[in-house]
Nucleic acid binder design. Sequence first.
DNA 1: CCACCTTTCCCCACCTTTCCCCACGTACAA
DNA 2: TTGTACGTGGGGAAAGGTGGGGAAAGGTGG
Lengths: 153, 153
Amino acid sequence: MLDQNFRGRHTLSIDSKGRVSVPAPFREILAERYGENRLMLATVFDRCLRAYPTEEWAKIEEHASGLSSTDKNVKFYYRHFISSAVELEFDKQGRILIPASHREWAEINGGQVLFLGITDKIEIWDKAAYASKMATLDPSSVEDSINEMGGKI
Amino acid sequence: MLDQNFRGRHTLSIDSKGRVSVPAPFREILAERYGENRLMLATVFDRCLRAYPTEEWAKIEEHASGLSSTDKNVKFYYRHFISSAVELEFDKQGRILIPASHREWAEINGGQVLFLGITDKIEIWDKAAYASKMATLDPSSVEDSINEMGGKI
DNA sequence: CCACCTTTCCCCACCTTTCCCCACGTACAA
DNA sequence: TTGTACGTGGGGAAAGGTGGGGAAAGGTGG
């Protein structure tokens, strides 16, 4: 499966209609591993978007349905995350149209968009927002902390 | 295995298309020890690139998947490091094409590139950037610190 | 219910990057 | 010199990404 994970960082531009090309290697994985030409797009708390193969999203919904639906954190989670998922198909050029509300949440106002391949999902960021978010943490203390937890670099 | 470790410092030039030859001894190790003609290339926090045999990279991903995915340091690590990995194959002349985003990160703007063989991985630096980075550290305090940690020189 | 405006979808066309060749120069050894 | 290994450079085809026009769909207000 090593060859079938989402991986790599791609910068693409979004046009005035809200369309972005999904990087070709990601489309290829969706087609070959999952047999699909679509993905589920959801809003994530830290002001970015996540795209999942429908199969992976199904697992998330399944887990979600087991949670206590009266807990206030769970309600928040349902309302913000679970309810945000939209199914998007690629057009003939391999693009998706990101809904306006999703663009707004992730502060995507045209310009450059970043696709991050993270094993079984894809994160989508406004490039500038990503840069400023990442600048809030100190890389060397992150390295130390990862090292303590047993991660490798 | 002593003869099968990456070792040595090689200066090579990158062309206008972003291609660099991978030093022949490194290619040989990849072929003979790992049976491959490709490598995984990732961006490292200190503004350089690291190349791993796919086998070594697989270990990194495996360790990474065990970390708590809601921790803010872990998210940073996923977003910056894990997601940056790209699989690159050698062309017929033994070169790789370094993706534009990776070149940008490592401040490689054409000119000279440095390959450092470090046991089971390879670091790739812009030659000028490497020189100025190394100049910021005081060699004798580095030696002391290594000595305290039990390293040998 | 109709007219209008906006958003979405589908098409085509262009440009840049990537990929796959082949060729040349240099260094080292026979 | 001749052969071989290695690094460098460039041309041309293919793929990937970008932009825009125009029809269809959907929503809004009179």
